[in-house]
Design a binder for these strands. Structure first.
Lengths: 210, 210
DNA sequence: TGATAAAATGAATGAAAATTCCATCTTGTC
DNA sequence: GACAAGATGGAATTTTCATTCATTTTATCA
């Protein structure tokens, strides 16, 4: 009985996941507006009606997609900043994690980076609000890291939040350009080391540690 | 007779221009997909049928806008590199012109950046090709400038085209971030000086001139 | 096995918007 | 001032979907 419903639960989740994957595929190929529910359904190998049993609208699919990814990235970042390493080390790790994530989720980033600004409603609607909060949580996470680094004299005195924003901006733009140029198999992660030096070199107290 | 048709011509152009301006206004506010032809027509104070006498589709309006902008920027850049100033000066001017242009066309750039993935005319279609060629012309223009600078020993020996691409990449990413973060009234142009030093400092022969 | 409930289907619906059509108005010409 | 050619307006048509729901299929279990 309980077993049964557990399996049901699992299967439900699995199907939901499949739909999200299909949607990610389609959205990244054609963008939000030019992807139809029919295409999503077909790509997920379900009928349209079925898709609607899992998500109440196309918009909700999009938002769920973004939310799941942003959440995933946030928890990866939390993981990366947990250990006992030095602050600059942690910062380098943050950079690596984010770039690696973009690398592995290239399709997703293509929609995310390229459309979030076009969707004012994303930020305004209740759902979008959740997404936005999670994004801000990323910023805060790194801002705290910077605060720490200032205390430990690893970084000079800067506004932590602004600086965190700047770092994220730097990473985002790098990711963006990398995605747009769609070059061969240039690795995004490789740029992390250089970006790290740039950022730390710019922010470091006197001479850069490590 | 000839006078007459000349005036007709002028008036035709003026109307076309008005429609483009209205479209730019609407697209900038709501994005491409959420702007309807009815809105464009209303904003231009024409009826829909009239708008269709000037442009055969909504997409064509958008395309014409993009093309005009890219063209405009190219000619501004040509202007900037014409005089008798030193090569590093010209380079700084290129940076300023490009940033100022993005600054003045902020709203428009935002849709361009955020929605272009929704179109199928990428670099392949006849249109995308025209735009792309004009973009490459910008790269070449600057590449020639760099070549000049190398000859005059203002710059060290680098691959001019690659370096030009790098500079454009640097500017683009700065512009992207600035556009996407949609901050208050931070000036983009103000960043030009700093970007200039960075680029020239990196490329300068021994110590940077000016 | 067959009765019942739950899930899945996809054609039908309706709304929003792009595009077309043509009646009406403007302008230029003689 | 009358006629033609062209321009304009906006209602009507067509297209494109998101969403719904009557029906069919599948799963559960006595």
């Amino acid at each position: 009985m309980d077993q049964r419903s557990q399996r049901k639960q699992r299967e439900y989740e699995a199907r939901r996941e499949e739909i999200l994957l299909a949607a990610e595929r389609m959205f990244s190929q054609h963008g939000f507006f030019k992807t139809s529910m029919a295409e999503i359904a077909e790509s997920a190998q379900f009928a349209m009606g079925t898709v609607y049993r899992f998500f109440k609208s196309k918009e909700e699919i999009y938002i769920s997609l973004v939310e799941a990814k942003v959440e995933e990235l946030l928890s990866l970042l939390k993981e990366a900043t947990k250990g006992g390493a030095s602050t600059p080390e942690k910062l380098r790790e943050v950079i690596n994690v984010k770039l690696a994530f973009a690398d592995q989720n290239r399709d997703f980033f293509r929609i995310y980076v390229s459309e979030w600004s076009g969707f004012e409603w994303t930020v305004k609607s209740a759902f979008g609000d959740r997404v936005w909060k999670k994004y801000l949580a990323q910023i805060d996470l790194v801002a705290n890291l910077i605060k720490e680094g200032i205390k430990s004299k690893d970084f000079r005195k800067v506004n932590p939040k602004d600086t965190s924003l700047a770092l994220h901006g730097m990473l985002n733009s790098t990711i963006y350009v990398w995605i747009l140029q769609a070059g061969p198999k240039e690795s995004l992660v490789d740029k992390g080391k250089w970006l790290g030096s740039l950022f730390l070199g710019g922010i470091g107290a006197v001479t850069t540690k490590s």
